[in-house]
Every structure is written in C-alpha cells, then in structure tokens.
Amino acid sequence: MGVQIVVFAVCAIVALLGALGVVFARNPVHSALGLVATLFAIAVLFVNQNAQFLGVVQVIVYTGAIVVLILFVIMLLGVDTDEDLDTEPLLGQRWAAVIVALLLIGGIAGIFFVEGRGEAVTGQVAALAPIVPGIPSTDAQGNPTTAAGVDTFVRALPAEQQQAIGEQNITQIGEHLFTDYVFAFMITAALLTIAVIGAVLMARRPKRYEPMPELEDTSYEDVDELSTTGEVTG
C-alpha cells in the first residue's frame, strides 16, 4: 500500500494548497497558477487510482485548454493587478457564498456517511467483472472484496491478461460513451456547440450601433477604426 498512500498524501496537500492559493492570492495570475496546481494534482490522483485516461484528459482539457484560456484573457485584458477586496461588488454576496458553501459541505458529508464506504470497493469489483472473469465478489469471511483483494487476484494472473486489463480501461470508457451514454454525450456536444455559436453571436457588434457620444479625446477615431476592421476579419 505504501507508494499509493504517499502519492495520495503529496497530491492531496498540493491540491489543497493550490485551492487555497486560488482563493487567497491577490493577483489573478497567481490564482490561475494555483488552479493549475490543483488540477494537475487531481490528475495525478486519477493516475494513482489506475484511471490513466481520466488523468491525462484532465491535463489536456483543464490544465492545457481551459486555464490557458483564462490566463490568455487575463493577459489580453491586462487585469493582472491586485484586486480591491474592501468593497463588495454585489450586496450580500459574501453571506450567500458562506451559506452555499456550508450546504455543499453538508451534502458531501451526508453522502459520505449515509451511503457507506463499502460501495466504492464493490463498485471496483463490478467494473472489473466483465474484463476479468472470476473475481470473487466476497472473500472467505463473506465480506465484500476489498481493493487489496482485487489486487491480489489480478497480480496472480498471467502477464498478458494483466496487460489486457490496462488497455481495457480506455476501451471500456469508449464503449460506454458511444453505446449506453451516447444520448448524454451527443446532448453535451450540442450544448457546447450552441454555447460557442451563442458566444460568437453576442460578441459580434451589431452593424448599426449608436455612435458613441462625442469625446474631446482624439483617440476616438482609432477606437472606431479598430472596431470596424475587427468586424471584417472576425
């Protein structure tokens, strides 16, 4: 068990520190970097639980695309200055945030204590059952097979079969995604496409816009020119 526990401990600490950094850092770029640390630590935790595919997808999608976009916007807009925390942008927002956070923690704790922890282990056996025939669902004492029990069983298999299990990890996700959950998959795809088109539509400046009120500033011409050229290329 040694290595796995150590990896878990290190990653958990990194993830928590990163999360705290996101909340407490004054500089938005530092917050984004904290988010990167958290997401990466969670990816390592996935790998630690043999979910390599999820781990690597986590890195590609969240670390590699989403946070890069966040950073990109921060840099492009030049909002990378310290934030003023003295004024509350929305009235009562902080109290509402505290209440929502407490509800969330309560919900998670509720699931943890009500559902019972044995579920996760039996889940693991159920997930492996179609690939590895003959995993016993209970041990000699009639208790549900633990993760260690599954592991002992798998380690006793010949090398080729063990390798097949590693490969199956990805095949299984693919099969489920394109058969059992194909509707959810397609709906998500449609949702994302609609969101992109919607964003483009909203970002497009309408052609007949109200001319801005006359300013003394001479840079007005430049702004106007920029917006029209932006429209032609975009």
């Binding site: 770029v29 970097l33 590609i60 670390t63 590699g64 695309a65 890069v68």
Partner: peptide, 25 residues
C-alpha cells in the same frame, strides 16, 4: 509504455504552453 501512450504527448505539449506564456507575462 503507459496505456495512454500518445495522449501523454498531447498532455505534455499542453503543459509546455505554460513555460512560454508565463515567461512572457
């Protein structure tokens, strides 16, 4: 030889973006 093989390449090249990006910023 991880089972995810080629996806690892994509993951690492997406990490490499940070080096360039943060260096500039």
């Amino acid at each position: 030889d991880p089972p995810i093989g080629i996806l690892f390449v994509l993951a690492m090249s997406s990490i490499a973006v940070y080096g360039v990006m943060l260096a500039g910023w």
